[in-house]
């Protein structure tokens, strides 16, 4: 059975239909690339799955959970983590704290325990910290752990966001344009990192990306959207050679 099943999602903003009966599935452990020209509805789809937008119709199933019936702050709890296209970090917190916040939903300390530093709260704090350090090491970020997130280079910030998403210990990791703004060598490294993380943390990855070489090299499966509709789905090479995809990107009819 597939892990994520997106069925007939429709999202309209006023007169614009951003997603028009989009459907696809991802199997556990897959890296799935989601491609399409600007405005195809990729980020909108992410926002629907994160419950930041409400779909007009359709359904999203994740394992045994009905995603669209889950409130936004419980999405992390059912095992879905994500990054943001324009970075969604907490600039005044340190890098280590940012990653620890990623583990928020799997920890329990509340106001009273926190104020009185109960043994359980201390233990949990120590464990969260160790976990975060572990992940920072995996992503070569240990050297900036205690710096505030504000003011670090863009490529580093992107990796921090990735680290934070990993700290959520989710089953599904949704990455929104992780390669944008990175240098050529950073992009290559990122591709390897994503695979490494998938294997090490048993992740399933849904990846929105414009960087075709990377998408095609690391994805097990690719879904192409255009004007909110799915126009192709299959292995990277199938999708790459699909006439509808070529047309969507080049704007000409493939003969």
């Amino acid at each position: 059975m597939s892990l994520l099943e997106v069925s007939d999602i429709v999202v309209r903003f006023g007169g614009v239909t951003a997603l028009d009966e989009a459907s696809f599935t991802i199997d556990e452990g897959q890296i799935c690339g989601l491609i399409g020209p600007n405005g195809a509805g990729k980020t909108t789809l992410f926002n629907v799955i994160s419950r930041l937008y409400t779909a007009d119709s359709g359904s999203v199933r994740f394992g045994e959970h009905d995603v669209l019936a889950t409130p936004p702050h419980k999405i992390a709890g059912i095992g879905i983590a994500r990054t943001f296209q324009n970075l969604g970090l907490f600039p005044s917190n340190t890098v280590l704290q940012n990653v620890m916040i990623g583990a928020h939903h799997r920890t329990k300390t509340e106001f009273l325990q926190a104020m009185f530093r109960t043994p359980a709260a201390r233990r949990e704090e120590r464990e969260t910290r160790e976990l975060a350090i572990e992940i920072l090491n995996d992503l070569n970020l240990a050297h900036v752990a205690n710096s505030p997130a504000a003011g670090l280079p863009y490529g580093t910030l992107k990796r921090i966001e990735l680290a934070r998403a990993v700290a959520a210990d989710s089953k599904l990791l949704m990455l929104d344009e992780p390669a944008s703004g990175l240098t050529h060598s950073e992009v290559e490294e990122l591709g390897e990192t994503i695979r490494l993380l998938r294997d090490r943390y048993d992740l399933t990855v849904l990846l929105v990306e414009h960087h075709m070489a990377m998408v095609m090299s690391i994805s097990d499966k690719v879904v192409a959207l255009d004007f909110g509709r799915k126009i192709a789905e299959g292995t990277p090479s199938e999708v790459q050679n699909d006439p509808a995809v070529i047309e969507a990107y080049l704007g000409v009819e493939a003969s």
């Binding site: 930041l52 702050h73 999405i75 992390a76 943001f84 005044s92 917190n93 928020h104 926190a114 704090e125």
Partner: peptide
């Protein structure tokens, strides 16, 4: 603590904070 981090995270950037489960 976890609570303090959640509160400052919310102040910095509320929507991502929510996707962390806050």
């Amino acid at each position: 603590s976890r609570v303090g981090r959640a509160i400052t995270a919310m102040r910095d950037n509320e929507i991502p904070a929510q996707t962390m489960g806050i």
